[in-house]
């Protein structure tokens, strides 16, 4: 954008014109080494016989073959589909519904928004701790409702192999849905009212107004929400550790917890690296097209 101003020749000129690049270069070097160099290193490890420590005996794709035959990996992947699918859909539906309701000139809108969004400021470990005990049948919701006199009430999902994964969904939705609401609300505020007024004069009902005109215009907000939620779902680690620690049994194991336990406690570093590589490729498939279009639009 800015050309350096031509001035008298001298030894300082080279420095002056190179200075911006010199300033940028430490950051670039850090990123090149610690992001891309490390990605390459882990990718390479995934094709070696590394166990407790990195080792460089090349074994080709053997770790990937082993990985996909492992029962605990397929459980983790299945769980990710259940968790990620429900998490994304519920957050979007809830976020959109709350945003539309909040967009009706609500009194105290600011206060309500603040309440809906504060979970986003918390650590997943805090969220996990709160929900872990609230959902615990011995002391939490189940015990409370039974104490109110509904003796047969049961809510033991967190201890139940079939249902435990849904408790992760409950806590994760609680944490993020307010944020998705804020994204949709920003989208709603950007919609031109003239089109809506015209449609209304033509006799469109509120419902038709939203379904036909407003929601289709929220496509960019849906895209952003999807990308953010999908990449958060794939990276989910802290919440599972705090809420269920992968249990009961392996019922709430996700790829991120699988990677950690295979690499650092089961000493199968090659397989751990292979699982990390799969995670990276999944996220890249979602993020790269998104960043690409965002950056191209800009320049």
């Amino acid at each position: 954008m800015v050309q350096s101003v031509p001035s008298r020749q001298g030894p300082g000129d080279w420095l002056r014109s190179a200075l911006p690049k010199l300033v940028l270069s430490p950051s670039l070097a850090l990123v090149v080494i610690f992001v891309y160099g490390f990605i390459f290193f882990t990718f390479y490890l995934s094709m070696t016989d590394s166990r407790i420590l990195p080792s460089f005996g090349y074994v080709g794709l053997e770790n990937y073959e082993k990985l996909f035959r492992l029962r605990s990996w397929s459980i983790a992947v299945d769980n990710l589909f259940v968790f990620g699918g429900l998490y994304i859909v519920i957050c979007c539906v809830l976020g959109l519904a709350l945003a539309i309701l909040l967009d009706q000139k609500i009194r105290a809108e600011g206060a309500i928004r603040t309440i809906y969004l504060y979970p986003m400021a918390l650590s997943f470990i805090v969220t996990g701790t709160a929900w872990k005990w609230f959902l615990d049948p011995g002391i939490g919701l189940e015990a409370v409702v039974q104490g109110w006199g509904w003796e047969s009430f049961t809510f033991d999902w967190i201890k139940n192999r079939q249902m435990a994964i849904y408790t992760i969904v409950i806590a994760a939705v609680w944490q993020t849905s307010g944020f998705v609401m804020a994204m949709f609300l920003a989208g709603l505020r950007g919609i031109d009212n003239e089109v809506l007024k015209a449609a209304q004069i033509d006799g469109a009902s509120n419902w038709a107004l939203y379904r036909r005109i407003v929601i289709p215009q929220l496509r960019p907000a849906f895209m952003s929400a999807f990308v953010v939620l999908a990449h958060m779902a794939i990276k989910s680690y802290d919440l599972v550790i705090a809420l269920t620690n992968g249990g009961p049994g392996r019922a709430t194991e996700l790829p991120a917890t699988f990677m950690y336990s295979y690499t650092f406690t089961r000493n199968q570093m090659g397989i751990g690296a292979a699982s990390a590589t799969i995670m990276l490729m999944t996220i890249a498939a979602i993020i790269v097209p998104y960043l690409w279009s965002e950056l191209r639009e800009k320049s």
């Binding site: 490390f38 882990t42 794939i234």
Partner: peptide
């Protein structure tokens, strides 16, 4: 102080925010 390739450099830095950090734990 834009220069040739600056958008690519920015893109590389930005992608680094989104990687699953499991990918860098071992190294």
């Amino acid at each position: 102080w834009r220069f040739r390739g600056d958008t690519i450099i920015f893109g590389l830095m930005l992608f680094g925010c989104f990687i699953p950090f499991q990918m860098v734990l071992i190294p």
